[in-house]
Design a protein around this nucleic acid. Structure first.
Length: 488
RNA sequence: GGUCCUGUGGCCGAGUGGUUAGGCUCAGCUCUGCAAAAGCUGCUACUCCAGUUCGAACCUGGACGGGACCUCCA
């Protein structure tokens, strides 16, 4: 088997992938915060890691893929001012954080499923691992790299950096960070500017809080991933991933926490996916330029001329490498939708091809190129370019301009199955099935038979009228030597 | 302000010292009663300036543009 090369943020270079304990493999990806709808930018990250997960499985690895759900955030409720009128609010009228968590978790899973993302092996929640986070915090304090001040526990970055490379992921200099980091409000108790919280004392208005050795509070911003990755994948595992925006802070602190806890850096390969942009700007909630997946499917977003199916969107994302920014526009989606349809149409044609004795195409070479593309840091744009060569072969054979043997046809079917369906996770949409469609098949056969009769009588006015009216009903008719075919 | 990334044809996007991915759009041809589809052909691009080199979109330096991070963020 060819070697797989992966770009590792730790070394800023492509490295040959060597798992710790093959064929078993551990992968952790930072998941969504479920306090609002996921937007398309979030979806891109999870789709990129879904591709990576799928390819690793295809290569024969037994992957444990852990993606957390951040549900212990910083929701604040209306503070009861001690006034009896307000203090007596019914329980059901108050904001219940877990209700919000449930709503957006279900929504997130639905969207992931529509995009045909495989579910991770484990999706642990932050609220389900408060004990683990506290235990880790205790151990870091015991190891002398964290301290408590007024109910909040801080990680001592400068002390940690004396014997460790704190900025390994970003290659920045600690002194520069110290000079340029902005002052955070409400964290006056910490000793160093760079120190971050492992446990935070809860204000009265905080809705989610737990008892701890340091008083009532909630876990800090970074400890959940350290606690959960360690619990499910061990102190050291193969791959840790997330969006590039997490690299400088979240992942830097995660590594520091793990080393402070057990002396080991958690993952050998750090993978970072790039951002989705709109008109050149990062898609984010705070900028107000985010697309919700449903707006995309229905076409209700003002920047879209029409709706796009989940698979057309998935194909659109696969046309760009995961480490490049991807700019989102109606035109780009239109182009991808057409290309995706061509890919799927060609697959249908492939099923109908008859084998020749000789071959005019080098299909085995094509397969090797597909693997080479994927082994080069999961290069899906190049993979897709090769797949379009397969499309040309298939369509040419269908036009009797190319020859494909039985083994060529089998191999092409395998290439489709492996790369298009298994690895890229694309699937055929709108499969015809059910009674209504069986009836439609019969009706269309009848209509086309009548049209053929008209054509045989050179009554082109009638045949064109039939075709045009079917077209208006979104049924496309194609004439060929073997007779007319139709598609919706 | 600091750190880092990036600038490719009408559009989207790979590539990264010599041989010009791919998709979409557009034009022509083949096929066809006409279309559609498909195939073929064409549109030969790499922000600018200087340098290294036999040779640079690709390396180096500079300028300009865009972006990310430094603060919860995929």
């Amino acid at each position: 088997m060819e070697k797989l090369f992966i770009y590792n943020t730790l070394t800023r270079s492509k490295e040959e992938f060597k798992p710790i304990n093959p064929p078993f493999l551990g992968m952790y990806v930072c998941g969504p915060t479920v306090y609002s709808d996921v937007h398309l930018g979030n979806c891109r990250t999870f789709m990129s890691f879904d591709l990576i997960y799928r390819y690793l499985i295809h290569l024969g690895y037994k992957v444990r893929y852990v993606r957390n759900v951040t549900d212990a955030g910083h929701l604040e409720g209306d503070r009861d001012e001690g006034d009896d009128k307000f203090a007596k609010k019914a329980k059901l009228m108050q904001l219940e954080p877990m209700e919000i968590v449930q709503k957006y978790t279900v929504g997130f899973r639905d969207i992931m499923s529509l995009f045909n993302n495989l579910p991770p092996s484990i999706e642990p929640t932050a609220t389900g691992h408060i004990i683990e986070q506290q235990e880790m915090t205790k151990q870091i304090i015991k190891n002398g790299l964290a301290y408590e001040q007024n109910g909040t526990v801080y990680f001592d970055v400068e002390k940690f950096a004396k014997s460790n490379n704190y900025t390994v992921l970003t290659n920045r200099k600690l002194e520069e960070l110290l000079e340029n980091t902005r002052e955070l409000s409400g964290q006056d108790d910490k000793k160093g500017r760079l120190d971050f919280a492992l446990w935070i004392k809860a204000k009265p208005e905080h809705l989610m809080k737990w008892p701890s050795p340091w008083g009532i509070g909630f876990p800090g911003w970074h400890i959940e991933c350290s606690a959960m990755s360690t619990k499910y994948l061990g102190e050291q595992f193969d791959i840790h991933g997330g969006g590039m925006d997490l690299q400088a802070t979240h992942h830097t602190n995660e590594i520091a926490q793990n080393i402070a806890y057990c002396g080991k850096s958690p993952a050998n390969y750090w993978l970072h996916t790039n951002m989705l942009t709109v008109n050149g700007q990062k898609m984010s909630k705070s900028l107000g330029n985010s697309f919700l997946p449903m707006e995309l499917f229905t076409g209700s977003h003002p920047l879209l001329a029409k709706g796009f199916s989940p698979m057309a969107v998935r194909f659109f994302m696969m046309q760009t490498h995961y480490r490049s920014t991807l700019d989102f526009s109606n035109d780009a989606l239109m182009a991808s939708e057409k290309a995706y349809n061509r890919l799927m149409d060609s697959y249908k044609v492939l099923q109908t091809l008859k084998a020749s004795d000789k071959s005019s195409e080098d299909v085995p070479a094509l397969e090797r190129l597909c693997y080479a593309a994927m082994n080069d840091d999961f290069n899906t744009p190049v993979l897709i370019a090769h797949l379009f060569d397969a499309i040309r072969m298939i369509n040419s054979a269908n036009d009797k301009k190319a020859l494909l043997t039985q083994s060529d046809l089998e191999l092409l079917k395998n290439i489709y199955q492996h790369f298009v369906f298994d690895v890229m996770g694309l699937k055929k949409e709108m499969e015809k099935s059910g009674k209504a469609n069986t009836a439609l098949e019969h009706v269309m056969a009848l209509v086309l038979e009548l049209r053929d009769k008209a054509k045989a009588n050179k009554d082109f006015a009638t045949s064109d009228e039939i075709r045009n009216k079917l077209n208006a009903a979104h049924i496309q008719v194609k004439d060929s030597k073997e007779g007319a075919t139709w598609s919706i």
